[in-house]
Each structure stands twice: as structure tokens, then as C-alpha cells.
Design a protein around this nucleic acid. Structure first.
Lengths: 229, 229
DNA sequence: GTCTATAACCGGATAGAC
DNA sequence: GTCTATCCGGTTATAGAC
């Protein structure tokens, strides 16, 4: 995670205090309006101390990613134990993802705006995001592997990464969703999961052999370029 | 374009001067390292004057979008006049797009990092981007309409927007492309255009009627939510 | 070596005089 | 429409305390 805990218990406590305070203030007044000075003051440490633990304001966001990711992993476990249809597994995990980030919807825009910036340590394809990305892709592999629905073997290797990209798309839509309770996002999850499962089932037909093969080559090319690699 | 040129010729000149200087400095030393003070100093106006024309540093980027977009429209005209196969038309326009933005590859990251931020006036789905977006989607409509390749009628309405999204994906890959001359991006354009055309042709089969219908509903849902609407 | 605190620095943005 | 002066907040330097 590269967010190395400090060496002493005291440091750990201070670190957690700063992070909790920051996330709370982000929720209360948004990211931009929360100054580092306010975070430090609000939890009774000096500005320099906050920077000792978090080298930049952005790093506080990374901690947020890690935190909600852990929530997702926990929420997913019972789902993957109980369900065995692909549709229920995939839909369950996606709904769980939205559930974990829902409290932060008000300032989600800022949290995810680095998504397009390869220079930022926070964008989903970056080195720093690698552990979380790997785990999430692994989660989608589990979604597939534990499912009773037969998967086209030619696509089995790539599918987890594709589903991860798909889940990024859902998050993008959630960011823009203004319906109460983000109903629309949940609706879109249901609809698109249905469609996705239908497509996956179709792709098993030998009719699609050439198209699937071409897709695989394309995905392999993209991987070589470093994206999602 | 909402980048209203000012009423007086003098203002016009100053405005253009600031913009040209800014883009030049962005090219020379990158976006982050170009300070507004440097832009102002470098073209002999006061800092406040630069801000009189561009209310924020970000707005200079918007001017860049508009400029390269105009380049694309011009480059596309001869292509669409000469080619009539879908593959040649789509591929030609996408290669032209990359050509127009290629000089800015070094700082492309920054230019496009707002892609995920709904709060920014610059992200592709925003109100301010609407004119450019509408024109670009129109360009893709022309790509389809003037093509000799038959298009599944059920998808004809949505296809331009889908192609526009696909072109955003290509740009995302280009941003991350480190191969000399961005060879990989051009290769991926060729490969993915081939695949896309093949998929479009397949979707004409009545076999796909239910899937296509479901896709249409899904896209309509997303439109209603405001994304790409 | 681990942590805290204070005082700058730097650059984006704004106010208000002319 | 152009300027100067100033604010504001992220970030950094540094001096020391434990």
C-alpha cells in the first residue's frame, strides 16, 4: 500500500488521528474547502506534523481508496460464499462497491479526478495503485471462477481485467448520478450486469471464435503498453 | 465555445497574445512548471491582465481543446470526401485526431486529467464542453452516414455517441503511450477499428436483436442521467 | 533516529486604484 | 482594460524536543 505505518505506537495513533480528521472534514465541507491547516488544527497537531505522516494532501485521498477497498473486500466475502450464479455474484460485488463509497458521494468528483492523469500517483493504472488494483482484479477473478455459469475459455484470462474496467465505468456514472440514493446507478448495474452475462454466454458459441480471438489480441496489445498491466 | 472574443480589437490582440504565449510555454516546459506569472511576464502584460482574459489557468486548456478540435474538423473533411468504406473513414478520423494533439503529448496528462472531475468545466461531459462534444459526435455521425457499409438500423441513433466514447478511450491510451511516435496507439487504432467494424456488421444479424435492444435501453438510461446527454 | 513546531516560500487567484 | 498589492493555502526548510 506504500502507506507505511510509522514505527511507534504513538506515531500510529497520530497518523490515524490525522486521517480520521481529514476524512471527516472532507465529508463535512468538501475537499477543496478543507485546508491542511484546518485538518492539523482540528486534531490538535502542528501543520508540519500532518505533513510528516502525509507528504501531500493528495495522499490523504489514497488512504481513502485503501480504506474503502478494504470495506469492499469484506462486504464481498459473504456474497461470493452464498451466490453461485454469475449474475448474482457480479451484481452483488458491484452494488457492494457503490455501498462502500456512497457516504463520500458529495466529494467523489475530487476523489476521482486524478483518474485521467498518468502523472498522479493516484490514477487507477499507476504504480502506487497497483496493490489495490491487483486485489480488485483478483476479486473479479473470484467472481468468475466460483460461478456456476460456464465462461468461454478463450476469454477467461482477460475477463477479470475487463470486469475491473467495467467497474471503473460504473463508478464514473455514479459520480455523475444525482438521483436520490443514486437509484439510477443501481438500476444501471442491474441492467448492465444482465447484458454482460448475456454477452459472455453468447461468446461461447463457435460463431464468435474469430471475433473473440481478435479481442484477445487487442487486449494483449494494450497490456503490453502498460495500461492495466 | 463560450470563449467569447472581446469587443475591441486591442483586447482581441492581447487575448491572443496571452493564449499563444501560454501554449508555447506549456510546450517548452510543461503545464505545472509554467506559472501564470511567467506567462504574463513573457508576453509583457501584468499578471492581473492575464487573469482579465482567462479567469483561471485551467481556462487556457479549454482554449487548447477548441483549437485542436478545429484542426480535427479540417483534417477530417478530405478524408470523409474521399473514403466510403466504414473502416477507412473511422480509422482516418481517429488517426487525424491523434495527429492534431500529437505535438502536445508531453503534457497531455495534465490537459486531460480533468476527465473524471464533474466539477470542472473541462471534463468531456460538462456544459462548457458541450459545443465541441456535439460537433465531434456529429463528425462521427457523418463517418457512419456517408459510409457504404450497412449499419444495423436499431443502433444507428446511438452509434455516433458510442464512437465518441470509443475515441475518448483511444485518447486515454495515447496519453499513456511511450513508444516512439506513439506507434502503439496507431496500431491499436487499426486493430480496434477492424474489430469495431466487424462487430457492427455482426450486429445486423437477427440473432442479435434481443441483445441490441437491451443495449439501446441501457444507453438511453445513461443518457437520461446526463452523461453524454 | 523519531517526532513536533514555527516560519517561511511559492504560485494561483482577487481587489481595487488608475 | 491594465496595473500593483495582497491574500490564501499547499508545501518546504529548519530548528530543536524526546
Amino acid at each position: 500500500m506504500a502507506l507505511q505505518p510509522s514505527k511507534t505506537p504513538k506515531g500510529d495513533r497520530t497518523r490515524a488521528l490525522v486521517l480520521d480528521t481529514a476524512l471527516r472534514l472532507f465529508l463535512e465541507r468538501g475537499y477543496e474547502k478543507t485546508t491542511m491547516r484546518a485538518v492539523a488544527e482540528s486534531c490538535g497537531v502542528a501543520l508540519g506534523s500532518a505533513y510528516y505522516y502525509f507528504p501531500s494532501k493528495e495522499r490523504l485521498i489514497q488512504a481513502f481508496y485503501v480504506r474503502t477497498h478494504q470495506d469492499l473486500m469484506e462486504l464481498s466475502r459473504p456474497i461470493l460464499q452464498q451466490e453461485d450464479g454469475l449474475q448474482a455474484r457480479l451484481g452483488g460485488v458491484l452494488r457492494a462497491k457503490i455501498k462502500t463509497i456512497m457516504p463520500y458521494h458529495a466529494f467523489a468528483a475530487v476523489l476521482f479526478r486524478t483518474a485521467g492523469d498518468p502523472a498522479s500517483p493516484l490514477h487507477p493504472f499507476s504504480e502506487e495503485s497497483e496493490p489495490v488494483r491487483r486485489e480488485t482484479i483478483g476479486l473479479f477473478r473470484e467472481v468468475i471462477d466460483g460461478s456456476s455459469t460456464p465462461i468461454p475459455t478463450t476469454l477467461r484470462g482477460e475477463l477479470p481485467t475487463l470486469l475491473w474496467l467495467y467497474h471503473l465505468g460504473i463508478i464514473l456514472i455514479w459520480i455523475h448520478d444525482v438521483t436520490p440514493g443514486c437509484r439510477r446507478t443501481y438500476l444501471l448495474i442491474d441492467r448492465s450486469v444482465e447484458l454482460t452475462v448475456q454477452l459472455i454466454e453468447m461468446l461461447r458459441s463457435p460463431l464468435f471464435r474469430p471475433v473473440v480471438k481478435r479481442m484477445r489480441n487487442l487486449i494483449a496489445e494494450i497490456h503490453m503498453g502498460g495500461v492495466a498491466g
